[in-house]
Design a binder for these strands. Structure first.
Length: 262
DNA sequence: ATGACACTATTTTAGTGA
């Protein structure tokens, strides 16, 4: 099973680019964030044409999450309990098993940005993370569970192009890193770090100032699995080839991250 | 120090993103 997370930055603007990636990488499941589209206006046809069904939790203008799957999928949660005011940021589905892996519970999340330390949105971000921790503390029923998303936190200095020089700035504060660690303390493993313990690899680069070509990125898009899932991981790819234009189409500022499970 | 790029609706400028 190949399963992915991707902040697409505008699903309608990105749809042709997404189709290019789906045809190339052939994931079984992809959780997408920052759709910026309502459920009513979600374009299902391009996904259906490639054999995917999509469950959505969107809203007008901002945020929005969805899961596309070519294995049978059933939505089990829409929205983070108690955090609806923060926007449509979480969806979870039950995916039929395939190959050596049984049924998988997969959630995708778009964690709040926080804007800046001192901004009113910053404590809102921390509170949302507390809600996510409480949610994740209750999900492990023993079967494979995975949450993939844009966490808007840089886990460690190596995950930032500026390294430890960024410590204390937005995404790199003790408060945010502590909240992120609290998710792992629910029994989850960062799948990329399981296969690449020390390597620096980024999943996001600013559109501005040639940041991508200058290596000025962050790793903020992660796949976090419980042990039942993590022990099935064969490989994890941060797909930086999809930060380039494809057939003249503009990429998201985030790249897809996918794991291959057996 | 600032802006830079891309998206959407609050649309021809502003707000957001990270």
């Amino acid at each position: 099973m190949r399963i992915a997370t991707w902040n697409v930055n505008g699903l309608r603007a990105r749809i042709d680019y997404i189709v290019h990636w789906l045809k190339s990488r052939e994931p079984d499941v992809v959780g997408m964030q920052e759709l910026k589209v309502t459920d009513d206006e979600f374009p299902h046809e391009p996904f259906n044409d490639l054999g995917y069904t999509v469950i959505t939790h969107g809203q007008k203008g901002w945020n929005g999450v969805a899961i596309a799957s070519r294995l049978p999928i059933e939505a089990t949660d829409r929205g983070l309990p108690g955090e609806a005011d923060a926007g449509a940021r979480l969806i979870r589905g039950r995916i039929a098993g395939t190959g050596g892996i049984g049924e998988v519970s997969f959630a995708t999340a778009y964690c709040p940005n926080g804007k800046d330390i001192g901004h009113a949105d910053f404590p809102v971000k921390l509170k949302w993370y507390d809600g996510l921790r409480d949610y994740l503390a209750g999900v492990d029923g023993g079967g494979p569970f995975l949450i993939g998303g844009d966490f808007n936190v840089v886990p460690e200095p190596v995950d930032c192009w500026r390294g430890a020089a960024a410590d204390g700035t937005i995404f790199c504060t003790v408060d945010e890193r502590g909240r992120y660690q609290a998710l792992l303390d629910c029994g989850l493993v960062d799948l990329y770090r399981r296969v690449e313990p020390d390597k620096q690899a980024f999943s996001w680069w600013d559109y501005r100032g040639g940041a991508f070509h200058r290596g000025m990125g962050l790793r903020i898009d992660m796949l976090l699995g419980n042990e039942a899932l993590a022990k099935r991981v064969k490989d994890v790819v941060i797909d930086r080839a999809y930060r380039y234009k494809k057939d003249g189409l503009t990429s998201s500022d985030h790249v897809p991250v996918y794991a291959d499970l057996d």
